[in-house]
């Protein structure tokens, strides 16, 4: 028996929008501690790791560890039927090969009418190997406004990475003299680091911008970059991308 209720159903909608362009199908792993997902893109260059902790749900019941394979495009279509203020309930069981998403509008219930919409989606078998990713010490960790990071990636990608039309340089300096802490740019650097990444992937990661006001980028020369969007009170979406290296 699996039953989860998320008051802010829009969080799962945003999560889906942030990962569906990177990964087509993925296993959602449910345990008593929460919901996790780890999946690589088809080229094994980038990886997404999601954590939504059980404490972040209004109601969370997971009798035994369950893995549900879902097509993220189809799931996104179903979640788009939910209003942004809707409460989302996810239901599953051990015997059927479907998962049910239920959307309820609490605001309407308070008046006199109770709207319930439910969508049943077919599950799929996905052979999904997990990578063991140990915690690492990074040479540099940048915490900055997520919208600014998205803007930088978009601008650089529009100029392109071939050098055909010219070059672009953007320098981002530490800036902590801001009114709101989420507007700060904080650079923790243990050692200088210089790396090259495929902008196409970085741009895909920035689809997670609506999930968090800030983004954390962790860099070490011999490791994939980690781009992390914290989901307040619940967990995170982390993206990993291997660097381009000179051969």
């Amino acid at each position: 028996m699996l039953e989860l209720r998320l008051v802010q159903g829009s969080i799962l909608k945003k999560v889906l929008e942030s990962i569906k362009d990177l990964v087509n199908d993925a296993n959602f792993d449910f345990s008593s501690s929460g919901l996790t997902l780890q999946s690589m893109d088809s080229s094994h260059i980038a990886l997404v790791a999601l954590l939504l902790k059980s404490e972040g749900f209004e109601h969370y019941r997971c009798d035994r560890n369950t893995s549900m394979g879902m097509n993220l495009g189809n799931m996104s279509k179903m979640l788009k039927c939910a209003g942004n203020d809707d409460i989302l309930t996810i239901k599953g069981d051990d015997v059927s090969d479907t998962v049910t998403f239920m959307f309820t509008s609490d605001l309407v219930r308070e008046i006199f009418f109770y709207k319930i919409a439910d969508f049943e989606m077919k599950l799929m078998d996905i052979d999904n190997e997990h990578l063991g990713i140990p915690e690492a010490e990074y040479h540099a960790i940048v915490k900055m406004p997520s919208a600014e990071f998205a803007r930088i990636c978009k601008v650089l990608a529009s100029i392109g990475d071939t050098g055909d039309i010219g070059t672009a340089n953007i320098v981002l300096r530490q800036n902590t003299t801001v009114d709101k802490p989420e507007d700060a740019t904080v650079i923790e650097m243990n050692e200088p680091v210089s790396m090259t990444f495929a902008l196409r992937y970085m741009n895909t990661f920035t689809k997670a911008t609506p999930l968090s006001n800030t983004v954390t980028i962790s860099l070490s020369p011999d490791l994939p970059v980690v781009v992390k969007y914290k989901i307040a009170e619940m967990g995170y979406v982390r993206f990993y991308l291997t660097p381009k290296m000179e051969e």
């Binding site: 080229s43 190997e129 990578l131 090259t196 994939p224 291997t242 381009k244 290296m245 000179e246 051969e247």
Partner: peptide, 14 residues
């Protein structure tokens, strides 16, 4: 010439 290794080159499968 630039190359991009797969993630398995950095992390091992569980």
């Amino acid at each position: 010439y630039e190359t991009q290794l797969r993630l398995e080159a950095f992390y091992s499968f569980n």
